[in-house]
């Protein structure tokens, strides 16, 4: 899957989980940029992304991401 396609799919998942009308994620987007993205919704995002892409993250990945770019790295490596 193209990196841009992963971003597109992530946009949909973020909107769905965080109840947003629209979101445009980029490599540098982090939890600081989106109000609704807090520690609780982060867990929901992980579960939704795992389901959406049919993958499982390791516990280490979950705690080390600093931004969406690194998240996409993890996803891309598993596809």
């Amino acid at each position: 899957m193209e990196r841009s396609a992963i971003f597109e799919k992530l946009n949909d998942i973020f909107c769905d989980v965080l109840d947003l009308d629209e979101v445009t994620l980029d490599e540098a987007t982090s939890a600081d940029d989106i109000d609704e993205w807090d520690s609780l919704s982060h867990i929901q995002l992980i579960v939704a992304i795992e389901k959406g892409f049919g993958i499982k993250f390791s516990s280490k990945e979950i705690i080390t991401w600093k931004n969406v770019g690194q998240m996409v790295d993890s996803i891309a490596a598993k596809l």
């Binding site: 867990i43 579960v47 516990s59």
Partner: peptide, 16 residues
């Protein structure tokens, strides 16, 4: 139970 989520959260009941 989701072990990977449990590690960073102390949540022992999975969202599902």
């Amino acid at each position: 139970f989701s072990p990977n989520v449990y590690m960073s959260t102390e949540m022992v009941l999975s969202i599902d």
